[in-house]
Nucleic acid binder design. Structure first.
Lengths: 235, 235
DNA sequence: GTCTATAACGGGATAGAC
DNA sequence: GTCTATCCCGTTATAGAC
């Protein structure tokens, strides 16, 4: 954390240490994810990044452009992940597990991604009306197509593939996007590797049940995560 | 829609038609649901309600208090619904259907409720740290308890009841909270009674599958809602 | 109880020095 | 490329007449 004073005493025009653009976008992603578009100020992003608001604007022009760049990155990242993990598979149950596993890993490691995307879907902001909306639409379409293919192949249960796609997406995004609020319901450690693993086990079983009808066994949750501790250590 | 001019020409101090407080809260709910807390201005709420911003502030003191009142109402409404629909039941599968059915009806009829609640859970605002947070916690706890009871009764599949509760809540809230954005994926009419019915059928099957392991049959989605029309009528 | 008018503030964006 | 300083707009909240 670069201190405020160090910043103020700096000369103008001298790059402190050549803050790379990617770092700025990452910082912005974290802050936007935390507070939403309207809730975040450029000052906060700038402060976190260790520069001034004016410098931030120099790079991105305005707040909306920065936000768009952040969201673009998130959406194409997820899109690639889904295509990659499910593409070129004939083993439908295997693809199902691979997909769920990678998504839980990604969202669990970076809860900001789920928050950012879910918020945008709820808000229906201008981003979704442009290229971003098309990407989301394509990804949903792709997912529904994958499910439909599994049904015609006779391995997935016949049902409305679009409705199924939306409940699966919802079950993924909701959990990690609201983990901060529901963390006390789960007990400490929901963000830990163990917590992510517990979620992954549950999700894989749930998705298998929905698609295959397999009454999957998830007999024993990690005892440490079953009941919240009344006075558990924070973080 | 009361016209702007009619408002401006009114005399001060004379109640137009005695706008009831509940109406103000309802209007505020709709606007907050649409744009989020930071995204909504008191001017917009006031305009929708047919009064001035100053009058609005007279009733509620400040923006935060109004928001809290709105959210309180939403949360206790949902809490009551869940308790009522699942309480005093020994028929677990029946309770499952009743619960899902009523929730889909409620959220489908008023998508703002899902948006409002989901946004708050994502934001983790100050509301959740007060009485609201306790209510949410209680409701989650109640739901997990219901599922656990069904498991010990031997009718629900044994699994982590907390993880199950969160995926079910997520599958409910996500769908209706993001319907505006994913509407084009579903085709026109997602908000219609027919669209809600399609969702309800799917949700009941999904939840049954998750809890009971029943490979429920949802063979035929309404043809009108299966594929989006390229040039469908709006609304 | 509703209005007009205005104060007070926060935040986005620009100008220009270095 | 980063800074300081400034402008300016939107929004909240208050004061006080009616």
């Amino acid at each position: 954390m670069p201190a405020r004073e160090a910043l103020a005493s700096r000369k103008a025009g001298r790059p402190r240490v050549a803050v790379p653009r990617t770092h700025l976008v990452e910082t912005a992603r974290a802050v936007f994810a935390d507070r939403g578009y309207h809730g975040t100020t450029l000052d906060r992003i700038a402060e976190q990044a260790g520069i001034r608001r004016a410098s931030l604007l120099h790079h991105f022009g305005d707040k909306a452009s920065l936000y768009q760049e952040v969201l673009d990155q998130v959406v194409v990242g997820l899109q690639d992940l889904i295509r990659e993990a499910s593409g070129a598979r004939t083993d439908y149950p295997g693809a199902l597990d691979a997909l769920g596993s990678r998504i839980v890993d990604t969202l669990g490691r970076r809860p900001g991604v789920a928050r950012l995307l879910l918020r945008e879907l709820v808000d229906g902001g201008p981003y979704l009306e442009g290229a971003g909306g098309r990407a989301v639409q394509e990804t949903l379409e792709f997912t529904a197509g994958f499910l439909a293919a599994g049904m015609t192949a006779g391995v997935f249960l016949r049902q409305d593939p679009r409705q199924l796609a939306l409940t699966i997406v919802g079950l993924h995004l909701y959990y990690f996007a609201t983990l901060d609020s529901t963390g006390s319901f789960l007990g400490a450690g929901a963000y830990s590797d163990a917590g992510i693993e517990v979620r992954k086990t549950a999700v894989l079983a749930h998705v298998r049940s929905l698609c295959l009808g397999t009454p999957a066994g998830v007999p024993d949750p990690s005892p440490a995560l079953r009941r919240p501790r009344t006075k558990a250590s924070s973080v």
